[in-house]
C-alpha cells in the first residue's frame, strides 16, 4: 500500500502541485480562481470525445496494427511522403497538440519516423479554423505569411529534431 501511494505521488507530482496552486488561489481570490477552474471543466467536457478517441486509437495501434504497416506509411522508407502526410495532418487538426501526445508515442514505438511526428507537432501550430478570425483582426497578408513560415519551419524542424534524437 505504501509503495502504491509513493508511486502515485511520483507519477503525478506535477498534477498534485497544480492542485495545490489551485487550492491556494481559491482561498486568496475565490471569485477569479473559481471562474478559472470552471473554464477548465468546460474545456475538458469540450475535448472529452477527442480524449476518449485518442486513448482508444492509441490502444488500437499498440495492440492491433502491425508494425510494418506504420513503418511503410510513416517510417523511414516513407521518405518525403511521410513527412508531407505529417505536415498536412498537423495543419488540419484542431485542439491542443498535447492531447495527442499519447497517440504520437504509440506511433513512434510502432515505427513512425521521429521527423514525421515532430513535423506533425510543428504544423499543429497552424490553426486552420481560426484563420478567418485571425485575418479579420490582423490582416490577410500578415496571417498568411505567418502560417506559411510555420509550415516550412515544421518540415525543417522535424528533420533537425530527428537528427538530435537519433544522435548516439
Amino acid at each position: 500500500m505504501k509503495d502504491k501511494i509513493l508511486s502515485f505521488l511520483k507519477e503525478y507530482t506535477l498534477e498534485i502541485i497544480i492542485s495545490l496552486i489551485a487550492v491556494t488561489l481559491l482561498i486568496l481570490n475565490p471569485q477569479k480562481a473559481y471562474l478559472g477552474i470552471k473554464n477548465a471543466f468546460f474545456t475538458y467536457l469540450n475535448l472529452l470525445l477527442v480524449m476518449v478517441s485518442v486513448a482508444f486509437l492509441a490502444g488500437f495501434i499498440s495492440e492491433v496494427i502491425p508494425k510494418e504497416m506504420i513503418k511503410k506509411i510513416l517510417g523511414k522508407e516513407s521518405g518525403i511522403k511521410g513527412i508531407l502526410i505529417g505536415a498536412i495532418l498537423g495543419t488540419l487538426m484542431v485542439g491542443p497538440a498535447y492531447v495527442f501526445y499519447p497517440f504520437f508515442k504509440e506511433m513512434i514505438s510502432k515505427g513512425a519516423r521521429v521527423s514525421v511526428i515532430a513535423t506533425t507537432i510543428g504544423a499543429w501550430a497552424i490553426k486552420v479554423p481560426w484563420i478567418p478570425f485571425a485575418i479579420a483582426l490582423l490582416g490577410l497578408k500578415y496571417v498568411l505569411l505567418l502560417n506559411f513560415l510555420v509550415f516550412i519551419y515544421a518540415i525543417i524542424s522535424g528533420l533537425i529534431v530527428e537528427y538530435f534524437v537519433n544522435l548516439k
Binding site: 506535477l14 498534477e15 497544480i18 478559472g36 477552474i37 473554464n39 474545456t43
Partner: peptide, 11 residues
C-alpha cells in the same frame, strides 16, 4: 494529466 493543464490555463 490534461485536466491539470486545463486548470493552469483557466487560472
Amino acid at each position: 494529466r490534461i485536466f491539470a493543464i486545463f486548470v493552469i490555463i483557466g487560472l
